[in-house]
């Protein structure tokens, strides 16, 4: 293969094919490795055999990404013994699910308490960074994990432990939540105008604008700074 391999130094920074510093490959070597050699994905022949007690499904193919995660959790130790996944999505979506599956099962398995704390940044860090536009893919991974663990709580009748994503309504007229703003930022919204476009709304409720701007700043700093 004649393709240039990205030097180690580039692993720290996300590489965007359209940016001036893009050097041949869109993603880091780690992303590339996990994309071409995905770990722990659900093979056809395992579909019936794989024993699991937590299943999470997030996204939809219409949005461009969908992820399903099967967890086998040891009820005694509450460690993730094994997992399988399937992902519909671009290279970074596949790689980020693969690396997430490694993170939660390595070293004897991660405790679900810890697994619930995994943030998108943690996945990105392990991947050696992602192009800005691709950040939303890895966010799906932590959401699938949370959904699967919630499913485990449900299956084991521990309903009190189910973590609900506490979405706070920011614009009561348009029913826009902080989660909506977070998603929009991850999809590249940088200004109020971008937000309107991403959220497909006409004009924001005037009283909600300061809160929206604050969230915009907050999530921009969280993911991009």
């Amino acid at each position: 293969m004649s393709k240039k391999v990205i030097k180690k130094k580039n692993l720290k920074e996300p590489v965007d094919i359209r940016s001036a510093n893009g050097e041949g490959w869109l993603y880091s070597d780690i992303v590339k490795d996990h994309f071409f050699n995905p770990r722990n994905f659900m093979k056809y022949e395992e579909e019936e055999k794989f024993k699991f007690n937590g299943l999470g499904r997030v996204g939809s193919p219409a949005c461009g990404d969908e992820m399903v995660l099967w967890l086998s959790i040891d009820p005694k130790t509450e460690k993730i013994r094994d997992c399988r996944w399937r992902t519909f999505g671009c290279g970074s979506a596949i790689a980020s699910t693969s690396i997430l599956s490694e993170m939660i099962t390595e070293k004897g398995g991660m405790k679900i308490e810890m697994a619930l704390k995994i943030r998108p940044q943690d996945i990105m860090k392990r991947l050696g960074g992602l192009p800005d536009r691709k950040v939303h893919c890895s966010v799906l991974g932590d959401k699938a994990l949370q959904a699967a663990i919630n499913d485990y709580f449900r299956q084991t009748s521990q309903h009190h432990r189910i973590v609900t994503a506490g979405a706070k309504i920011i614009d009561p007229v348009l029913k826009i939540t902080d989660k909506d703003v977070e998603e929009a930022v991850l999809e590249g919204a940088q200004t109020l105008e971008d937000l309107q476009k991403k959220l497909k709304v006409g004009v924001f409720n005037k009283e909600a604008i300061p809160a929206l701007e604050e969230l915009l700043r907050f999530y921009t700093e969280k993911y991009y700074k």
Partner: peptide, 15 residues
């Protein structure tokens, strides 16, 4: 095979 869009079995479809 890596894609969840068309999971074959009933076991998965319910989700």
């Amino acid at each position: 095979e890596m894609s969840p869009v068309n999971l074959g079995t009933k076991k998965h479809a319910q989700y």
